[in-house]
Amino acid sequence: EITKKQQALVKVIVDAYDRHQIPQDVAKKLLQDQYSAEENFLLLTEMATSQVQVLVEFTKNIPGFLSLDREDQIALLKGSAVEAMFLRSAQVLNKKMPSGHTEVLEERIRKSGISEEFITPMFNFYKSIGELHMVHEEQALLTTITILTPDRPYVKDQLAVERLQETILDVLRKMCLLHHPQDPQYFARLLGRLTELRTLSHYHAEMLTSWRVN
């Protein structure tokens, strides 16, 4: 059973998650006109920057986050930004969009100059997230858990982060049982996606390095 306190916690997190989305004018640009590969790249960079800003605003609203050490806050955000971004993108790409929009978006990503060996695992991840059919609360909580990962580089007070993360894990576990009673392994499968996310983020770092070299 989810306690009243836990319900309130979920509400705060989901409200913040909904309030902090990429601004419409930035998102709209993705669906406009044809761009060259370079313009596509710049546009995706702008999107990524916007996503990080939105992520920080969301994170500030996670109960307890601002009471963590300031440098630990930065380490957590730095360590999770890319993963949180992939989660949000998966959610966007799996949403039912007006006909043709998904294709335009996919095409844009494919034409941005990102190498195929990175694109394939990325789209595979988006697909595997889509197959979970997460409810909205679960998406917001999973993102929160990603952000509150204690073993990110340079986090000093791991125990404080762990305590916050465990509070959210406990709610998510209960929520999974409630929303997916026919699938007792659902919570474990959600956590499994976090491992996939780490792998993807590792690929991403490699990809950035090769870009810098070029």
Binding site: E46, T49, V52, Q53, V56, E57, I74, L77, A81
Partner: peptide
């Protein structure tokens, strides 16, 4: 523009300021 900043700079700026205001 913000897109010229590195990840850590974007995070620091966003943590200090409030984009909603």
């Amino acid at each position: 523009p913000a897109s010229n900043l590195g990840l850590e700079e974007i995070i620091r700026k966003a943590l200090m300021g409030n984009l909603e205001e």
